[in-house]
């Protein structure tokens, strides 16, 4: 019964998607309400997509080269941001002196959006990998710290009691009680940060890049190639969804029983 229900909702979702594409097709290819340079038809976008898989026109790279370039930048910034954010967030939540030490600076920096760092980072680091990774790092770091911090802070007090009763030390309670119970929050942080990473990446590439999905969109816009702009947008969406799926896969493996 339950299975049937899920399938029914899947059908509804599929119908929505089909209707969306159909309307798009009708207003472009059939009724021609929009000029091709403003809104190309879905089929022409699809063919542009296929063509772009191998073509380097007009931006000097195939779609895969752009995806790869974007992934490298996004994951570099993301991994470093998470790698630094996790220990910082955990220490701030668990050790009060660390909290007081780091908090003033952190609270100031967190109010500056990641993309506001773009100008200064391009001045410091140019438009290569390191500048864009740094922009992504800032957003991911902040998102990770905030979520990990509140996750650790919300450790059930009685679970801490129970651990004390069974003789666990403060460090042990952190490792065996606080962190495991905060895992859902930590993964929320990782997911939110992944979104931020992708967002920061595209913004950075729109302004300063020589390859990547954001760059591809920007060049296509200058050439009046709306079809390629949409190809880029759809690719960005799909890649973001795939990354989120991969993270959720890991989450299901790691978070159990909660």
């Amino acid at each position: 019964m339950k299975r049937l229900k899920i399938n029914k909702f899947r059908v509804i979702s599929a119908v929505t998607l089909c209707v969306f594409v159909l309307v798009w097709y009708l207003v472009t290819a059939v009724f021609g309400l929009f000029p091709k340079t403003m809104l190309p038809s879905p089929d022409s976008v699809f063919f542009s997509f296929i063509k772009k898989l191998t073509s380097t026109v007009p931006d000097g790279g195939t779609l895969f080269e752009h995806i790869f370039a974007s992934l490298v930048v996004a994951l570099t910034g993301y991994v470093i941001g998470v790698g630094v954010g996790l220990p910082v967030g955990i220490s701030m939540a668990w050790f009060r002196p660390v909290d007081h030490f780091v908090r003033p600076v952190f609270d100031f920096l967190r109010t500056i959006p990641g993309i506001a760092w773009i100008p200064i980072f391009t001045v410091w680091l140019g438009i290569g990998l390191s500048a864009k990774a740094a922009i992504i790092f800032v957003g991911v770091f902040v998102g990770t710290v905030v979520n990990v911090y509140s996750g650790i802070k919300q450790t059930n007090e009685v679970h801490i009691w129970v651990a004390q009763i069974f003789g666990a030390s403060k460090i042990e309670i952190l490792k065996r009680v606080a962190i495991p119970s905060a895992l859902p929050y930590i993964f929320t942080g990782l997911r939110v940060s992944l979104g931020m990473a992708w967002l920061g990446l595209i913004a950075a590439e729109l302004l300063a890049a020589q390859k990547g999905l954001g760059y591809m969109i920007q060049v296509a816009r200058n050439f009046g190639r709306s079809d390629l702009v949409i190809v880029g947008m759809i690719t960005i969406g799909i890649m973001g969804a795939l990354l989120t799926l991969a993270l959720e896969f890991v989450e299901r493996r790691v978070v159990k029983g909660i």
């Binding site: 009685v158 679970h159 129970v162 119970s181 895992l183 159990k256 029983g257 909660i258």
Partner: peptide, 10 residues
Amino acid sequence: YQNILLFPWL
């Protein structure tokens, strides 16, 4: 305890 307080992640 009455409301047991097992560690749900273990």
